[in-house]
Amino acid sequence: MTHSILPDYSVTASFATENAEDSSDDDLDSLPEAFPSAADGLLSEASLPGAASSGGAGVGAPLSATLPESLAGERLDKALAQCFPEYSRSRLQAWVEDGRVTLDGEAAKVRQKVAGGEAVLITPAALPEQLAFAPEPVPLEAVYEDATLAVFNKPAGLVVHPAAGNWSGTLLNGLLYRYGQAAADLPRAGIVHRLDKETSGLMVVARTLVAQTDLVRQLQARTVKRHYAALVWGRPPQRTVVDAPIGRDPRERTRMAVVPGQGGKPARTRVVTVASAEWEGSPVSLVLCSLDTGRTHQIRVHLSHLGHSLLGDPLYKPRHKRPVLPGEFARQALHAWRLGLIHPDDGRFAHWQAPLPDDLRQLMTTLGLDFDFSTLPDSLDDFFPA
């Protein structure tokens, strides 16, 4: 039996509306709203979506009605749609097919005709979103873990937070399973930033409310060091800074874009090209990126704006036709390979690294790209352009 034990995590519209294709990449825009005092957000169980169903796994509060005589002769599904207009006809049909609807105590059928006057009882199935914030044994790779925080190496394909299209199997579900009530007592189970579904790499998660407050403030102050490796089309400048505001693309609202004027928020990405090669006549490069801000899809948008879209990116495609990638590589070639921050407990700066995942390493080998990450200094402050 699944019981709801969590506070309400749907604290911001921007977080709550991430979709299956593109959750926000280090989206810090909504952090002030997500943690207005960095100490609230612990709401009662009754505030959770689906709290009414916590008494039984997958069961909502019963619905009952008496069918009006005026509906005599109508098919049951049509009659139900008129009696319960707050639910879609397809959902009502599904409940009938699942045996969740009775007429005068007898199991109902979708196409049966009604006589009018029957007593209808519906036992609704809980909606997927009502069961979203439940512990699940999602495999998580911990790079570092103590009583205050944990750093995970997120694989490509893992969604960070439940939302439309991905109500289960997310990082948040895995955190609830791994840490139990301690995670349930934290807003968003301790999550303070995100990566796109198909972006791999490092994420920090708080394990206490004090640590979560501290990490959110570090992210807002831009003192968290976030470094990415990306494979791109073309040969970008060896060292460059992209300082261009990002906002919703006015021509295609599912995308972000460089938007001049008041339509965009300040965004700054520092880029260093460390290797280049050619694939079937088209140049390709490995670039390292450092984020000074954390806008939605920032690296993908800025590199596309430069004319150097990420390999495999389905949303920010190159302006010109490019050759098919080897092995049918089909995700944006982006990996959060290094993360640094001030530890909330002792004030020491700490950093962690995650090697490129197998799919990116294999892609680099096939493309003829080579770079030894171990040659990079511990401090990257002077490595990236100012």
Rank of each mutant, 00 (worst) to 15 (best):
Y87H: 14
S88T: 14
G73M: 03
G56A: 13
P124Y: 02
T293I: 05
P7D: 12
P124R: 04
D313K: 02
R319C: 11
V192N: 02
A39D: 14
E69R: 11
R194Q: 01
R338I: 02
R89I: 10
S90P: 08
E21P: 07
G307P: 01
V96A: 09
T293S: 03
R361H: 14
A119P: 11
Q238K: 13
A16E: 11
E69W: 15
T296H: 15
T375Q: 13
A61C: 12
R361I: 08
F84E: 08
F349D: 11
S44F: 13
T366A: 13
L76S: 05
Q353R: 10
H227K: 11
R331E: 04
D104E: 06
S290K: 12
S285E: 01
Q93R: 11
P32C: 00
T199A: 07
M1T: 15
D185E: 15
A275R: 00
Y144L: 06
P68C: 10
P139E: 08
R239G: 11
S309A: 08
R217W: 07
D370M: 09
F15I: 10
A20Q: 10
V143Q: 04
D381C: 12
T2N: 15
R91F: 07
A57G: 10
A46Y: 14
F15A: 03
T208M: 05
P314F: 06
G56T: 11
L215N: 04
L103K: 04
L140D: 05
A182V: 12
D185H: 14
P62K: 05
L127F: 14
S4F: 13
L158D: 03
N166V: 08
T102H: 02
Q220M: 09
K113D: 10
T148H: 13
E280M: 12
A150W: 05
D40R: 09
D146N: 09
P49D: 02
D98N: 14
D382Q: 13
G99A: 12
L356T: 00
L6D: 14
D382E: 15
P187Q: 06
D214N: 08
L286A: 00
F84A: 07
S309R: 07
P32S: 03
P357A: 04
E129W: 10
R322V: 12
K113F: 12
P357M: 05
E141W: 03
G116N: 02
G368P: 00
Q212R: 04
L215W: 01
I5Q: 15
H343C: 04
A39K: 11
G340P: 02
A72G: 09
A72K: 13
L291T: 00
T366D: 08
W167A: 05
K225D: 15
V301M: 09
R270P: 05
T12M: 04
S53T: 10
A108Q: 06
T12P: 02
P68Q: 10
E74I: 03
